[in-house]
């Protein structure tokens, strides 16, 4: 069954904001500090320059995002990326889905993302299927995740710390998707 999935290579997308981003030469001291712009590091992405219109939330969210996606121990990185991908597909954020599908493929190999991108969800392993089901249910509005999802994650070998990490990596894309998709387009 695993052999008949065509291997998909996902090409990167480029994100372009709908709103004018902050230009470095016009940035306030607080915006420059938030973007960590220094005389030797002046290149900042359009995404960062768009969100730094509000430096308070930009700094707070970025620190939380990095803690959730890169903290040591607990849930393995590929599982966090799959949670991010599941949320992004539900929220229609093509850019985030693309970035995190590629991250997953890089960390875990192309099988799972190839299955998802070719409509072969049925071919996912038990753990990946449990993660995707939970990501979709938690991302719905209102969230409809229930004990059956938790049970499936435990059955697939996840402990409480790992499930907590997964909840966070799905939820933080309920945030990130609501920035990337409404505020810009990808091509």
């Amino acid at each position: 069954m695993r052999d008949d999935i065509p291997q998909i290579k996902i090409k990167p997308l480029k994100w372009t904001p709908h709103l004018p981003p902050v230009e470095i030469e016009d940035a306030t001291e607080r915006q420059l500090a938030a973007m960590q712009v220094t005389p030797s590091a002046k290149k900042v992405s359009p995404y960062v320059r768009t969100l730094v219109h509000d430096p308070d939330s930009y700094v707070a969210r970025t620190e939380l995002f990095n803690a959730i996606m890169y903290v040591e121990g607990g849930l393995p990185r590929p599982d966090r990326e799959l949670g991010a991908l599941g949320a992004s597909l539900v929220n229609g954020c093509q850019y985030c889905a693309n970035v995190h599908a590629r991250q997953h493929a890089k960390l875990a190999g192309p099988f799972a993302t190839s299955a998802l991108y070719t409509g072969r969800r049925d071919a996912l392993c038990e753990r990946d299927a449990a993660i995707m089901d939970f990501a979709e249910a938690l991302t719905a509005t209102p969230p409809r995740a229930d004990q059956s999802h938790i049970k499936a994650l435990r059955k697939a070998g996840m402990d409480e710390v790992e499930i907590q990490d997964l909840i966070h990596s799905i939820a933080i894309f309920g945030w990130a998707n609501r920035l990337m998709h409404p505020l810009g387009h990808s091509s």
Binding site: L51, D54, S57, Y58, R61, L138, T139, T141, P142, P143, A145, I167, H168, I170, A171, I172, G174, W175, A176, R178, L179, P182, L183
Partner: peptide, 16 residues
Amino acid sequence: SELLAQVCYEMRIVHG
């Protein structure tokens, strides 16, 4: 946008 997204984040943390 950040405010709305923060609420949607925390909603899912609390639910999960």
